[in-house]
Amino acid sequence: MMRRTTISAALAIIAALGILGSAFAADYPAKPVQMLIPFGAGGSADSMGRMIAKTAEKHLGQNIVAVNKPGAGGGIMLTALHEAKPDGYTIGWGSTGILTATNIGNVPFKHDVFTHVARVGFSGMPIAVRADAPWNSFEEFVAYAKENPNKIKIGNAGTGSATHLTPIFIEKELGLQFIHVPLGAKRRVPSLLGGEVEAICVPLPEVAGQVQAGKAKVLVIPSAERDPGFPDVPTMKDFGYDVVIELFRGISVPKGTPDAIVAKIEEAFKKGAQDPEFIEFAKKNSFNISFMGMDEFNNYVEPMDTKIAMVMEETGLKKN
């Protein structure tokens, strides 16, 4: 009995040393890295995440294991990421949701508890209507909405989500009033096609197929530049409005992760995003690869966060 205790104590010490050792950047990564995904299996966030994990792990030298942590508008995953050890073995596959979920106030922290390591790319978030809708352009749509306030129903993925905030930004900038319907991600497209709502705000990949088939049309994509897949669709900037909102996707880690480790992760995902396999996948899914390293990414996130916080405050979405 005595001997067994001694042995297990010795083993414990060795194992503990191993854990300590693995925290040193030089050895990183010494074991598989967990990548938390804020949604369940099957959606575009999940498939995109699993794809980049697959291409990035070639360059990281360790497996990247995708772990689904769905729920609470991303709050569950963000909490898990926040509570994880800042050792680079737990990373998060974040999106604009990282800003909306922290600003709505259901989790007790802000986005700055994370280091945003790398933006892989983004999808446009267009306003889409049915193909037989009476509006053929964004101007016609706006003109109608101006004359008929509180008439057009716009579906979104949930109150406080990025697809809810986009129409709110448009409302504010143009002095319009919509009825916002929190249809949820699953029922957005069927509700539009079934005629329950007049318009939806939706990530481009989810509606691209319908547009190509002539069932729906996109009126405006409020990205910074015109979408390469839809060069004819204007941005909000084209009309002179300062509304830029994109569904970005990238990697965040808990603050305090050693710089050297962060640099390794950044490098792996940079190369992963340039992998032909990922490029092809992204193209088919209307995802625009546009890599940003840590500094650039943080500069990109900060003003967007301020804007989102402001709008949430104004519309009373923010919890006190």
């Binding site: 503990a16 294991v65 772990v67």
Partner: peptide, 10 residues
Amino acid sequence: FQVQLPTGIF
């Protein structure tokens, strides 16, 4: 199944 079970020290 790639379920991340806790591996602890042993």
